[in-house]
């Protein structure tokens, strides 16, 4: 009886150990590398800032792009290349924490790069240049661990096709 019990415990222990090992190994296999670079397109329209992120293919400008507005998400410790434009007015886009101070203007594309730094939430200060106040242009710059960032982007809506005016 005791031997049987020992045997049962041994089998169970072995199974658990194998399960744990498999789990660790599987996670290791599945874990994606940390993002060190990101391309984002920023579009001003109707007193909102829209952020276009690359989707799972990691390439901006394809059909699986994702679209967010107001808050801007980025992976931690990464370089982010921003391409800013507008469909109507001139917007100032500023993130003091990372030294971003740029303009989104119709018919023009301004490129700039920021280094995101550690995870955290910072102020994103958008404004219409020389225009009314628009609270919708004020949001957060959310810097996340790469895995969290990926999850965030996956939850965003698909970006409209290039023909759409927010593209």
């Amino acid at each position: 009886m005791a031997a049987n019990l020992r045997s049962t415990f041994a089998v169970a222990a072995a199974l658990i150990a194998a399960g744990v090992a498999f789990s660790i190994g599987w996670r290791g296999l599945r874990e994606e590398p940390a993002l060190t670079h990101l391309d984002v397109k920023v579009v001003g329209l109707d007193y909102h800032l829209y952020f276009h992120y690359p989707g799972t293919d990691a390439v901006l400008g394809t059909s699986d792009d994702r679209l967010g507005s107001r808050n801007f998400f980025a992976p931690a410790n990464a370089s982010v290349d921003l391409n800013l434009t507008s469909r109507d007015f001139v917007y100032l886009v500023e993130i003091p924490e990372v030294g971003l101070y740029e303009v989104a203007a119709p018919g023009l594309e301004f490129k700039t790069r920021i280094e995101t730094g550690d995870s955290g939430v910072h102020s994103l200060l958008g404004s219409q240049m020389c225009g009314y106040d628009h609270p919708e242009l004020i949001g957060d710059f959310v810097v996340q661990r790469s895995a969290d960032f990926r999850r965030t982007v996956r939850k965003l809506s698909p970006a409209p096709l290039p023909a759409n005016r927010t593209q």
Binding site: S86, D88, V90, A105, M129
Partner: peptide, 10 residues
């Protein structure tokens, strides 16, 4: 233009 003040960039 809605963005008249960028005119000098064109």
């Amino acid at each position: 233009y809605k963005a008249a003040f960028t005119g000098h960039l064109f």
